[in-house]
Design a protein around this nucleic acid. Structure first.
Lengths: 166, 166
DNA sequence: AAAATTAAGTTGCAAATGAAACCAAGTCAA
DNA sequence: TTGACTTGGTTTCATTTGCAACTTAATTTT
């Protein structure tokens, strides 16, 4: 952490530490769904959300996954093309799509879920339950600070919008 | 955290929490150097490293910033084009470039550093020194787990390589 | 001394992504 | 009833990024 002298050093800069942490952790998971099923991160997250709740609209997927609607739209299109997701127009509002996984999509998730859970376990290996709870709690507080900062300086900014920088 | 029943829920999946955390925190910093100077994250990090040590080779920048060499190469090219960095061939090894910030590059950093440090402070607002130390420590441990996992399964993988998935 | 290999960095190409514009459908005010 | 506005989602275009191949230079092996 940069001290009161406020000397800047990249290797002590908190957002940089977060980025390295994120890069390392995400790599352990993304390689699984990418190598096994050629899934992008947005496709994986879309399927993960639909695995829990169905049917959902694209907007609901956006809300439950913190992804940008453009990325959700593209993920839906490619998952549909690959036969992993089916799409029906909502008769009560024909702008809206009702989305659910196909049988094939569900089989993919049945195979992937144990693998990604095992990867998660390896990430957290050696940490006690208390430490994990502490880490998640501290991350949440920082995230809330960040959202407050982003909201203060850009009133129109959607909080589901994604950025990939630090 | 997913419990012993191993039910998968995206909103409880640790890599997903890390990704949201990362997105939020990085957004608060990247907008600063992007809006002020049109800098990409790779350009910013390249400048940040050169601000501390100079001259450096591209390879040394790669090592000190955890960026991929292709991205460093591109950042160097565009910073040079914008007059913020200068590049000299190392006479002892003409494959190698010796890189340093120009006067203009240093002025950019003089303006940016207080701003990004202030952003960092806002991210960590409300956390005690002990909590920040605890958060960084726990992040480091998880990152080490991740690197171990990545190293076990891909012996040829470079640990400086970047990925942006979860 | 010459060939093979390794190193430092760059470039090409395809895919992914971000920003903005667009379209069809639904709602609301006049 | 009609026009204006909002909503849900898609598409376009430009930029960024990842992967692999390439180039030049240095070192190592034969």
């Amino acid at each position: 952490m940069n001290g009161p002298a406020r000397i800047f050093r990249l290797e002590r800069f908190f957002p940089y530490l977060v980025r390295r942490y994120y890069r390392a952790t995400s790599g352990t998971v993304s390689r699984i769904y990418k190598s096994r099923f050629g899934l992008s991160v947005h496709e994986w997250r879309t399927m993960a959300v639909l695995n829990d709740y169905e049917p959902l609209s694209a907007k609901e997927i956006v809300a439950r996954s913190s992804m940008d609607k453009v990325n959700v739209s593209r993920a839906i299109a490619s998952l549909k093309r690959d036969g992993r997701l089916e799409r029906h127009v909502d008769p009560t509002d024909r702008r809206r799509a009702l989305l659910r996984l196909t049988g094939q999509g569900k089989r993919v998730m049945r195979e992937l879920v144990p693998l990604v859970l095992a990867a998660e376990q390896r990430l957290l290996h050696g940490l006690s339950e208390a430490e994990i709870a502490q880490l998640e709690s501290l991350m949440r507080r920082v995230e809330q600070n960040a959202e407050r900062v982003l909201a203060d300086e850009a009133p129109a900014a959607s909080d589901t919008h994604e950025e990939a920088r630090a």
